[in-house]
Each structure stands twice: as C-alpha cells, then as structure tokens.
Design a protein around this nucleic acid. Structure first.
Length: 599
RNA sequence: GGCCCCGUAGCUCAGCGGAUAGAGCAACUGCCUUCUAAGCAGUGGGUCGCAGGUUCGAUUCCUGCCGGGGUCACCA
C-alpha cells in the first residue's frame, strides 16, 4: 500500500507533468513546519529556476491543479514558492483504516528481492569478544533484520578470524607452556585426544602473552610465522590443535550471541577459504594482475584521479603465507560461487576503511565479485566517560558478556525504582516465588538488552558515543526502556478495553490534534524503514520509533479512551492504539529489541 | 606530512541544498480521587569550529585554515 507522501507525490507529479514539467519535481514530503501544514512540495523552486519562471507563479499553477483533489483540505503557497498541503480528516482516516490488520504496517516487500550477504561480528579465536564488538553485532543484526523484512534473501556470516598469524602465536606459546603435548611431536601423526588441552580462559591468557612476546622478540615472531605457515600447509598436529582452539572459541562466542539474541546463517571463517587461496593467487598471477613487489605478491589498485595514494593490495606475503587481504579476497570468490549475491555489506569499524577500499578495488579489478556491490559499513568507537575507547579501570578491554550482565543489573535496579515510583511495594527477591523471580529476570534481560542496543543504534553509525549505562537504562528520554514502556502501556490499554467489552473498530473519525498527529506518524513507518535500509542507518528507524512513542503518549494523555462514551470514536481510537502497538513492536523487533509482556 | 572521519544548545546527539536548525538530558512553570505521571503541556537556552566561494537560497556542496580522533604494504 502506498503511503500518504507517495500518494501525494503521484498527485503533484501529475500536476507538474500537466504543466509540461518533469514529474520528478512533484516530490512531496512530510512538512518541516508542522505548524503550517502536514505535507509540503518544494518542486516549484527548482522547476522555476530551470524554466526561468517566477517560482511563486509556478507554484500557484501547480496548487490550482492540486486543489481539484477532494482529499486535500488545504493547498497553500508559502515563502518563495513552497506548496503546503493538508489532508481532510476523512481522507486521513480512510487511509489509516486500511492499515488495520496489516502485520507489516503498510511496508511493502521489495519488487525485486536481492541476495544480500552481511558480514559482521568478526570474532577472533582466542579473544573473548569485548565492548568493541558490540557495534558490529548490533548494527549488523539490525541490517540483517531490515533486509529480511524488506523481502531480501539475507545471509549473515560471522567471518571468524581463525587463520592468521595469531594461530601461530598461540601454537608456539602453548608449546612453551606444555611442550610434551602430542600435537608438537612431528613423529606423531595422530590420532590426537578429543579433549581440548586448553579452555577459553587459557586461550585468553596465552594470546596476549604470545602477542607481546612476538612484538618484543623478532626471533619469537619468526617462530610464530613459521608455525602459521606449517598450520596452513597442513601439519597434522597443528591442525588438530587448531581444531580445539576453534571449538573452544566457538562455544564462547555462541554464548554471547545467544545473550544478545543475534544469530548467523553462516559460521564461516578465514580458514574456510584456505583451499581457494592458491588457485586464486595462481589465476591472478597468470592474468598479470598480481605482480611481485619487494618480495611480496601485490595487486596495484591505484586508480586514475585518486586523491590519496593507496598502497597496493598484498595477496601473498614474502614468506608465502596468506594474510587477511588474501582471505578477504578469497572469501568474495567463495561467496559469489555459493550465493552470487547482489550486495555484500561489511559491518566493520571505520579504521579499516582503507583495507576494504583496497580489497574492493582488487576484487573489482580482477572481476571476482560477480554482480555484487561491495560496501564497507563503518562505525565509530564506543567510548568511556573520558571520551576515549571504553576500557576497564585497569585499562583492559571490557568483555561483552560482562557488559550485558551489567546492563541486566542496571535494568533490574531501574525496574525496581519504577515499581516504587508507581507506588507499588516490590517484594524483596528472597520473598518472591520462583515464577515471579523468573519473570522478573526475563524482563530485566529484555530491558537491559534494549538499553544497550537502542543506545548504540540511535547514534549515527560513524559517530563515536559515550557508553553510560545509567543513562541508557532510564525509562525517561530517548531510551530503549522508554520505548518498551510505551509499547507495554499501549498493550495494557487494549487489555483493559477488552476487559470492559470494548473492541477496536473502523477508523472512521479523526477529531483531535492528537488523533491526527498519531495517524500521520503511523503512516511514516514504511518511509523510515526504507530510509534506514537504503542508508544502512538504523538510527533513522530509532528516531522514528521515538517520535511514534511520543505521538502515542500525547494521544494517551489527551484522551481517556476506554471511558469514551461515543462508541464510534472509541472504536476508532482503540484501532489507532492497536496499530501503534503493532508499529512499535515491529520497529523495535527490526532493531533487535523485544517488548516485554509487562513492566 | 598525505589521506579518512568528526566539530551543531551547559551535556549526549539528530538533521546534511530550502521556510523560524531539532530531540533527549539538565534548569524552570503548570497538570495525578479517571486506561501505568519515569508521562503530558509549556518556558529559557545556538554567530551550526573559523574564513572564503558556488547558489534565488548553505548547518548541508567546494576550497583553505584551526581543533579532536584514526590511518599510512607484508598484524587483524
């Protein structure tokens, strides 16, 4: 179903066309000046410029044509030639009434669905995910939900970091600690123990140690490089050990994904494309695209008219090993072979922008990407109160799992304060039944997640933001919990109405400013979803949901709905309420946020 | 030094060619015997970093400068 701005755009486009002008000038948008009108069309200004006409006179001509439509209550010219329009309440009511019982809230599915691969999360073996991973996960998940809702075929891929130098660093460090393990004995070709010799905690401890040692000692680094190359060449003991590293790491990462309610279609990693590397490199060499430079094999990706000098893309290190440029390129080959996507999105921090620019250029130059458009979806950092990237007081990274736990904790506190403020007397936990405890726990989980997800998504991707849990978990202001609360109020109102024997009915009347404003806001959901998806900017949807919640709160404060005596009006308002609940729930779910049963 | 991102209200951030630049928080003023008042209605608060340019019109586009962050071939 077309939205009101779309319907009015068609109308205005026809008017411009009738004047012999480009219909594209007919774009109608929600008014920037809600005090003056509901909708506006600015097309007369550029059109008049192109035609060397008086903009006001042209606007008058267009307006005269628009006035003929009975759905418009008002068509006015303002300022230099803005055309302002208001709908009649009848037309607005009739339009919104059609949205009733549409679980998609008027959002159409795409005419030509696309295959989209979204690469996000990007955990590494041996490294517990930390606060820095939050943005990739939350933004990537929102994008995956949005594209899926639009009807695209989405494949999300965690793209595990399981194949670089860090593997050699881990192997060699473990060898120092436990040299007698069978994996290090070259004579032992297996089989090896099923039980992992290390836990996630071991890996977490070993990795930084190895990394630091390699930094300090070139010989130690060489050793790690050699082990990496041997692993990649298929040395059985290293291979078996590496499988254990992976198993342990996967289990750890899965725990965090579950905690965040985020799932992936593909659990692929750099290692999965290992077999593709050699043939790809050979092919690039044969075609003269990859050339030798300073001992390494590179693709020159500088382009005509470059403002900056991009270093070449390294396909193979001088020691013959693959590095992440190589696996990224091979991953493109793999994805094209498996899914032939129209679009690939890489939700990775902004500092890696140049890396992706290089890889994308290399892929395009070598024709590896098929029909796919490749896009880096960068994002800024999560900062602490000092404005610097989020750290613990000791200076270490903040673990993602701890962050989620803290959010739950804060949510629990906030919920308790909410109950107290409401005049309830919440019992102490020890006095609660197991059922009540479990329910409270579930609500705290949902609210805590909403708090961190919404806080992350409401900022534009590229801006760095300050992580402030106390602020995020507040039920007031532009927060996830406030939105959940609005949705829950909406639902409780409906339940109350049903208990009184009142049911939603046709939206046949729109009477107050609050009715009108809520109806107009509901119609903007498809536009918000479209923009958020097209711009890969979930913050667009965030500000929309907030505005919807505000419009609902105003509506709620302005009318006592369940006690409305006018049956027709009551039915219409209950329908507006039902629509709002669907729209809120839908929008929040696209952001990865659940609405609790009650709060 | 080259390049990329950012600089908007006291604070946290939207907006990115159009009318009087917005929201939340904080401050102040009203409104709870009625569907959840952590809500609603309202007030105050800004040379949109600075200087030029393009345009009928610039916070938005271009150039230069200042300030913050990032990055500059064999780590990811």
């Amino acid at each position: 179903m077309a939205t009101l701005t779309q319907i009015l755009t068609t109308l205005a486009a026809d008017a411009f066309k009738a004047e012999g002008l480009d219909p594209a000038y007919g774009t109608v948008t929600t008014s920037d000046r809600p005090d003056l009108a509901q909708f506006q069309c600015n097309g007369a200004l550029p059109a008049a410029k192109a035609q060397k006409q008086n903009p006001k006179a042209l606007a008058e001509k267009i307006a005269a044509r628009l006035k003929a439509d009975p759905r418009l209550a008002k068509v006015e010219i303002a300022g230099p030639g803005f055309i302002n329009m208001d709908l009649t309440d009848e037309a607005l009511a009739a339009h919104i009434d059609k949205l009733r019982d549409d679980p998609r809230c008027g959002v159409p599915t795409r005419a030509t669905p696309q295959t989209v691969i979204i690469d996000f999360g990007g955990p590494n073996i041996a490294k517990t995910m930390h606060a820095g991973h939050l943005r990739s996960l939350v933004i990537g998940d929102a994008l995956q939900r949005l594209h899926r809702f639009m009807g695209d075929k989405v494949i999300s891929d965690v793209h595990f970091g399981d194949w670089g130098l860090q593997m050699g660093q881990l192997i060699t460090e473990l060898k120092r600690e436990q040299p007698n393990l069978p994996y290090f004995d070259e004579a032992n070709k297996g089989p090896y123990p099923n039980q992992s010799p290390v836990t996630m905690e071991d890996l977490e401890r070993i990795y930084p140690k190895a990394s630091a040692a390699c930094k300090a000692d070139p010989e130690r680094l060489d050793e790690a490089r050699k082990a990496t190359a041997e692993l990649q060449a298929g040395r059985p003991g290293y291979r078996a050990l590496w499988e254990h590293f992976r198993g342990v790491s996967f289990a750890g990462v899965r725990r965090e994904f579950d905690a965040l309610d985020i799932s992936f279609d593909w659990w692929k990693g750099e290692s999965d494309v290992d077999k593709l590397v050699a043939p790809m490199v050979d092919d690039l060499k044969r075609r003269g695209l990859a050339v030798e430079s300073q001992g390494a094999l590179v693709i020159h990706i500088a382009e005509e008219g470059d403002k900056r000098e991009l270093p070449p893309l390294i396909v193979q290190k001088s020691d013959g090993a693959a590095l992440y440029e190589t696996t990224d390129l091979a991953t493109i080959v793999d994805r094209v072979a498996k899914a032939d996507p129209d679009l690939m999105l890489y939700v990775v921090g902004q500092p890696q922008h140049d890396h992706f620019e290089k890889v994308f250029r290399g892929a395009r130059k070598a024709g590896l990407a098929g029909k796919a458009t490749l896009e880096h979806i960068g994002f800024g950092t999560v900062n602490g109160p000092d404005g610097k990237p989020f750290r613990t007081r000791a200076g270490g990274t903040v673990k993602l799992f701890d962050l989620i736990e803290q959010a739950k904790q804060e949510a629990r506190k906030a919920l308790r304060e909410l109950a107290i403020a409401r005049g309830e007397n919440p019992p102490e936990e020890r006095d609660m039944s197991p059922e009540a405890l479990a329910e409270g726990e579930e609500i705290a989980r949902q609210v805590g997640l909403a708090a961190i997800k919404f806080a992350d998504l409401q900022n534009h991707r590229l801006t760095n933001y300050v992580f402030d849990l106390a602020r995020f978990t507040k039920f007031e202001g532009e927060t996830g919990p406030y939105l959940q609360y609005a949705a829950v109020r909406c639902k409780s109102l409906q339940l109350k109405a049903v208990q009184m024997g009142h049911w939603p009915d046709a939206i046949s009347r729109i009477e107050s400013d609050a009715d009108r404003n809520l109806a107009l806001t509901l119609d903007r959901l498809p536009g918000a979803i479209d923009q958020a998806t097209a711009k890969r900017a979930p913050n667009v949807l965030c500000s929309y949901v907030f505005e919807l919640a505000q419009a609902f709160s105003r509506f709620w404060a302005a009318h006592n709905i369940v006690n409305e005596r006018d049956e027709e009006l009551r039915g219409a308002r209950l329908s507006l309420c039902a629509l709002t609940f669907t729209a809120l729930t839908r929008s929040l779910s696209l952001l990865g946020i659940e609405v609790p049963e009650r709060m």
